[in-house]
Amino acid sequence: MQLKCAIIDDDSLFTQVIEHYLSSVDVIHLDGIYHNGAEALNKINFNEIDFLFLDMEMPGMDGISFLNSLAVMPPIVIVSGKKTYGVDAFEYNAIDYLHKPISNARFLKSVNKIRAHFEKSKLPQTSIQQNIFIKHEGIHLRLVVNDIYIIRANDNDVTLVANGKSYKTHLRLKDIYEMLPQDEFMQVHRSFIVQLSKIDKVDGEVIEVNGRTIPVSRTYLSELYERLRIK
């Protein structure tokens, strides 16, 4: 996942610090820095950014006026030198509220909140919008991606387990993997791909998905632990 953000803040020392913090965060790309609400309104292409770091107190157009002028509100992280904006953060459904000055440790906590926010907001879209077609017993069958737990490679075909049923298809494991959202599925073994959010248990080199035990190859083990955020 790669998220694009913009900073709207007149405090150049603060923006320098945030720019420095973001330089070590792979998941967030800084698209631009704007010094007040009016400048941001004129220059930001809201279709190209995922969220904003927004200061509440700026000369000209402040944070609240900026938010009130938007037809569609993007996700925001509210930033302020005053502690009094906590209620506004709640009211505007902010992902997080950062009180200046902000240490690197506090900022990284915010990054986790941001990531969790976008991962969470992605889940319903997956279940509603994403489908794949596989050829099963001579007919093309639509499967909802979110329903697929396990994909297993057999000698001559591949089995997909979705909603408690098994579907055999002659596609290769590699081909099916390419059809699936890579941030939600992972190959954990030469013969297995699983949906990460369906993993119930992890026990060393074995995982449990929907009651089925799946082996994890050593090659994929550290990546799996990292993606599941297991320390």
Binding site: S12, L13, Q16, V17, H20, Y21, S103, N104, A105
Partner: peptide, 20 residues
């Protein structure tokens, strides 16, 4: 430690602080 930065970044920040 607070900023998790090296000397070069801190120097640039302090110089900017003075100017500002």
């Amino acid at each position: 430690n607070y900023l998790n930065c090296d000397d070069a970044f801190l120097i640039s920040l302090m110089q900017k602080f003075i100017d500002e």
